[in-house]
């Protein structure tokens, strides 16, 4: 299988704080990778480095055959091929749902307005909220907003989807509807990297689970082994805490 993300030995500093410490990671086409770990462990930073929301200080990141640098041509070539869903949804509050969805395709990809609209309605249907198309985002529930955000990302027809704690800002009863949509995408063969604390989701969807602490990847395994036979004490302790409560 083709390698779509290849991260070699990257480190990232925020001032003197080392947010990422020699991280290595490979993601194959169609693979679902779940990243978990305590807060401040560098999970979000790692994901944000993959679409260049953060720049890495050392090492190399290769995404879809392009080495990530500040070079404009490079950013141009990965833009919209790597899409992202945020913890805080980050919908555009001054635009309607459908305008949120069509803006990227029309302005960044040069898709016609008609086609962008059709695409938007298709993906709204896919995340099961076609009836909300002409409302402003603030009239929607948190779960609905996050599903709009997922549809917005999908409208760009990305090759890779990144999720940065997509359910952490949601009320408990809304988590399921969002995870369901993400699972549906996973079953469809989308390559995805998901930062989450939802261990049930990880067990169901992940091909590979990564545990991070202090900016390092401590463990990397398939779900069955990851949960049953954690190698490090740190992961044992972490799993004890998240699974028991």
């Amino acid at each position: 299988m083709k390698e779509v993300i290849n991260i070699k030995n990257i480190s990232k500093y925020f001032g003197k704080f080392k947010a990422l410490d020699s991280v290595n990671l490979n993601v194959l086409k169609g693979q679902k990778v779940v990243i978990c770990g305590p807060s401040g462990s560098g999970k979000s930073t790692l994901v944000r480095c993959i679409n260049r929301l953060e720049s890495h200080d050392e090492g190399e990141i290769n995404v879809l055959g392009h080495s990530l640098t500040d070079n404009r041509a490079c950013l141009e070539s990965i833009k919209s091929k790597v899409s992202m869903v945020f913890q805080q949804f980050n919908l555009f509050p001054h635009l309607t749902v459908i305008e949120n969805l069509t803006l990227g395709p029309i302005k960044a990809l040069g898709v016609s307005k008609k086609e962008a609209n059709e695409r938007a309605l298709y993906f709204l249907d896919r995340v099961k909220i076609p009836e909300q198309a002409y409302k402003k985002p603030n009239l929607l529930s948190g779960g609905q907003q996050q599903r709009v955000a997922i549809a917005r990302a999908l409208c760009l027809e990305p090759k890779i989807m990144l999720f940065d704690e997509p359910t952490s800002a949601l009320d408990p009863e809304m988590i399921a509807e969002v995870l369901e949509v993400i699972l549906d995408l996973a079953n469809d063969g989308m390559t995805m990297v998901v930062v989450t604390h939802e261990m049930g989701f990880a067990k169901k969807a992940a091909d590979k689970i990564i545990f991070m602490d202090d900016g390092k990847i401590l463990e990397e395994n398939i779900p069955s082994i990851f949960f049953k036979n954690p190698k490090t004490n740190r992961l044992k302790k972490f799993l004890d805490q998240v699974l028991n409560y």
């Binding site: 679409n51 929301l53 833009k79 919209s80 790597v82 899409s83 992202m84 945020f86 805080q88 980050n90 919908l91 555009f92 803006l103 990227g104 302005k107 960044a108 990809l109 917005r152 990302a153 760009l156």
Partner: peptide, 20 residues
């Protein structure tokens, strides 16, 4: 977050300013 969302849907800096 608005700026970042604009960036991830592929808008240029100018477009992000103009539309978002």
């Amino acid at each position: 977050g608005q700026r970042e969302a604009a960036q991830t849907i592929g808008l240029s800096q100018f477009q992000a300013m103009r539309y978002i």
